[in-house]
C-alpha cells in the first residue's frame, strides 16, 4: 500500500535512508493521515512543483514550524468534525535545533499529533553542516577535522529524553535497519491519544560518506554497537528495549563511514570516549543480553 502513498521518482540520493523511513511510516499509518514536513531533504526531494511523490495530503510551511502547523491542523479537524491522523515527518535539524520551540509548545499543549524525526545527524540538505544531533567525533562541514579539531566536540542532543520530560505519553526510537519494528511503533502511536514522538535513525550516504549499498548495514550497526539504542517509553516508563547479543565494538560502525575516518586514524582518546558513550547507553537501557 505504501507505494501508492509515496511514489517512486523522487530525487533523494541513491542509498538515502529517509525514503525507506517514509515508506515504513506510511505502511504503519495507512492513508487517513495528513503529513506535515518542514524544510529539508524530504521536502525538496519529494515536492518539486509541479510534481509530488505524495499520495496523502501533505503540507510544508517553514523550517521551524512543523509542530505548530500540525497543531493547527489537528485542532481544525476537531472543530470541523473531520477525522485524520496528523503526522509530522521532520529532519533532525528542524527538530532538535531550529524547531524545538514549536515542538515543545505542541508537546506541552498535548495536541494529538505523531511527530516523527528522521535523524541523519546533520543539516544534510544544505551540505552536511553539524547540528545538535550530530554525534561526538563526526566531521562535518562546520565541525571539520583539522589541526586543532577532531570534529564535533559535543555529544548528540537527547531529544527523546526531552520529549519524555514534557510528559509525552509515547516516545520511541527506531532504526530503518529494523523495518518491522518501525512499522509496529507507528501503529502503536496511532492507538495513543495525545502527542507522540518517534525518533528514527536514517543513515545518509552523502553526509556520512559510505557506500550507498551499506545503508541498512550501518543502520543496524548503530544499534548493535549501542550507539543508537532502540526503546519505547510509555507514560514515562521504559517498557521495551531492543536487546543486543554480543554488542559490537564501536569501531565496526565507525570504520564504514568517512565522517569518522580521522578518529580511527589517530584520535585514540576520542575513540575511547565514543566507546564510553555506547557503554553508558548499554548500562542506562540494559541493552546487553
Amino acid at each position: 500500500m505504501s507505494s501508492q502513498l509515496f511514489a517512486p521518482g523522487h530525487t533523494a540520493c541513491s542509498g538515502c535512508g529517509m525514503p525507506i523511513a517514509i515508506k515504513l511510516i506510511l505502511e504503519g499509518s495507512g492513508k487517513d493521515i495528513i503529513v506535515v514536513s518542514p524544510t529539508g531533504c524530504l521536502e525538496v526531494t519529494t515536492t518539486r512543483y509541479p510534481t509530488s511523490a505524495w499520495g496523502v495530503p501533505w503540507i510544508h510551511s517553514l523550517f521551524e514550524n512543523a509542530a505548530a502547523v500540525a497543531s493547527g491542523i489537528e485542532r481544525a479537524l476537531k472543530v470541523l468534525n473531520r477525522d485524520a491522523n496528523v503526522i509530522v515527518i521532520a529532519g533532525d535539524g528542524a527538530t532538535v535545533d531550529i524547531g524545538i520551540g514549536a515542538l515543545s509548545g505542541m508537546f506541552e499543549r498535548g495536541d494529538n499529533v505523531t511527530y516523527i524525526c528522521y535523524d541523519n545527524e546533520a543539516y544534510m540538505n544544505t551540505g552536511v553542516q553539524r547540528c545538535s544531533s550530530t554525534p561526538y567525533g563526526a566531521s562535518t562541514t562546520t565541525s571539520p577535522v583539522g589541526k586543532l579539531s577532531f570534529g564535533e566536540d559535543r555529544p548528540k542532543k537527547d531529544l527523546p529524553a526531552i520529549a519524555v520530560a514534557h510528559g509525552v505519553p509515547y516516545v520511541a526510537t527506531a532504526s530503518i535497519g529494523y523495518p518491522k519494528d518501525v512499522i509496529r511503533k507507528i501503529k502503536r502511536a496511532k492507538e495513543i491519544v495525545g502527542p507522540k514522538y518517534i525518533h528514527i535513525l536514517t543513515p545518509c550516504p552523502t553526509g556520512w560518506r559510505f557506500d550507498e549499498n551499506k545503508t541498512i548495514e550501518i543502520a543496524k550497526l548503530a544499534v548493535e554497537t549501542g550507539l543508537f539504542p532502540i526503546y519505547e517509553i510509555e507514560g514515562g516508563t521504559l517498557i521495551k528495549v531492543k536487546k543486543i547479543k554480543n554488542r559490537k565494538p564501536v569501531e565496526e560502525y565507525l570504520r564504514l563511514q568517512g565522517r569518522y575516518r580521522h578518529i580511527l586514524k589517530g584520535f585514540k582518546d576520542q575513540l575511547e570516549i565514543i566507546q564510553e558513550i555506547a557503554d553508558k547507553n548499554a548500562e542506562k537501557f540494559g541493552l546487553d543480553g
Binding site: A68, A70, R75, A76, G101
Partner: peptide, 26 residues
C-alpha cells in the same frame, strides 16, 4: 463562541498554527 483557542508558544507559532488550520479549511 464555538471556536477553539490555541495557546501558542510564540507569535511565530501562533501564525504557524493558523497556517495549518486555514489549509485544513478553518
Amino acid at each position: 463562541i464555538k471556536a477553539d483557542y490555541i495557546r501558542a508558544d510564540s507569535e511565530f507559532s501562533a501564525l504557524s498554527t493558523l497556517i495549518g488550520a486555514s489549509a485544513t479549511g478553518a
